[in-house]
Design a protein around this nucleic acid. Sequence first.
DNA 1: GCCAACGTTGGC
DNA 2: GCCAACGTTGGC
Length: 154
Amino acid sequence: MNHWLLKSEPGTFSIDDLAAAPRRSTAWDGVRNYQARNTLRDSMKKGDTAFFYHSSCEIPGIAGIVRIVKQGYPDKSAFDPKDAHYDPESDESDPRWYTVDVQLVRKLKRLITLDELRKHAHKELSDFVVLRRGNRLSVTPVSKAEWQFVLSLE
DNA sequence: GCCAACGTTGGC
DNA sequence: GCCAACGTTGGC
């Protein structure tokens, strides 16, 4: 069972939006980056768990835990001209973009802030991808040790 | 294949 | 709103 970190802007879709969604589940669609696409399509497996990270907001940080409930399948939002993430070059017969379905496992008891994570950037979290300078990937792997350490902060 | 221009991300 | 980082695009 692997672990991941998924970024979302809470102004667009927050952990509370997920909690309020039917079956507390949603398609993680709209990702338009090839490296993240590859992860969504090839690496994330049903049953894997991921941190739900709030980015581009007042207090960035890890807000909750989600589980992959449906693994890689074509992202239909790319075919919809009205969708903000429409990609005319993604063909239905050869989809360019992929998504997974995630379901909320639970919100963390408190937000584990980016500030707090950074305090461990030179030790337990020295390889934590989300702390890397200039990291812009919206889907990143989390090692088992990192996963457990972050939860120990809770 | 190189690289400048441009667009997006995301913390501050 | 600013700006650094970095992915993508397109001319050559």
